[in-house]
Amino acid sequence: MTTAREKPLSISPGDSTGGSSHTNWKAIVDAASSSVTSDQSREAVAQRYWPVINAFVKRSGVNTAEADDVTQGFIADVLLGRNLLASATPERGKFRALLMASVRNYTIDQLRKRMAASRKPEAGWVVQLEDDTGSVAVDGDPERAFLSAWVVMIIDRASNEVREHALRSGQEMHWDILDRRLLQPCMTGAVPVSTEAFMRQWSLSSAVQVANIVARMKRRFTAALMAQLGQFDEDSESVVAEVSALLVEIGGGRR
C-alpha cells in the first residue's frame, strides 16, 4: 500500500469548509480502500478534520510553531497512513471518539519523543526516570478544544450547504434572513436584524412573511445540521443523543 507520506496531500489549515461535499462513513471507508476514488476521499477526509485535530494538538502542550507539523504528521501517519480509517466502522462506535482517542495518543507520543530528544545525552544512552512514565503535562483542555472545533465544523458545513442550496434556488433573500437574523447573532454575537429592516430591504409587505421565512429556513438549516451529524449516526434518535451529549460536553453540563 502506498503511504500518505509518499503522496503529499494539499492540506492547509483552515481549509476545512470548502465545497459542500460530505465526508461520511462511505467516504471514510473509500479513503481507506484502494479504489480509484480513494485519493480524492483521503484528501477530503484530511481537509475536513485538520482544524479539529489541530485544535487538540495546540491545547496539548505542543508549541505553536510545531503544532501544524504534529497535525500534519497525525493525518499522514495515522489517519491516512495507518489503518485508522479502515478500523473506523459504525459498529465500533462514534468516529468522533475514535479520532479524539487517536489524536490524544499520537500527541502524547510526540510530546514524549520531543522531551526524550531534548534530554538525550551526547553519549547516546537514555536514563529512564520514574516520572517519565507518567502523563505528559498539558495546558488548557485539549478535549474541550477538540469538541468545540468539531461542533464548529458541523455547523459550518450545514451553513455552507444551506447557503449554496438557497443561492442555487434563487433564494438569496431567504439565506440573508436566516444568516443575519439567526446564524450571525448566534455565532458572532451580531445584533439580529429586525423584521422591519428585512421588510424594507427586501420589499416585503408584511411581518408574517419574515416570520414564515425565518421558521422555514431554520427548519432547513436544522435538517442540514442533522444530516451532517447523521453521517455518523444512522437514525434520528442517535442524532438527538449525539446532540445532547455535545451540549453537555461543550455547554458545561447545562443538560
Binding site: R144, S148, A149, V151, V152, I155, L183, C186, M187, T188, G189, A211, N212, V214, A215, R216, K218, R219, F221, T222, A223, L225, M226, L229, S236, V239, V240, V243, S244, L246, L247, I250, G251, G252, R254
Partner: peptide, 30 residues
C-alpha cells in the same frame, strides 16, 4: 467566530426542538 462553546449551544438546541413532524416544528418556530 467567537467562543464556539457558548455560541453553538442555541444552534444545537434547534435539533432537540425539532419534533418528529417537520410541519409541526415549522409552526412552533413561526
Amino acid at each position: 467566530m467567537t467562543d464556539p462553546e457558548r455560541t453553538a449551544v442555541p444552534i444545537l438546541e434547534w435539533v432537540l426542538q425539532s419534533g418528529s413532524s417537520p410541519a409541526i416544528t415549522l409552526t412552533t418556530w413561526i
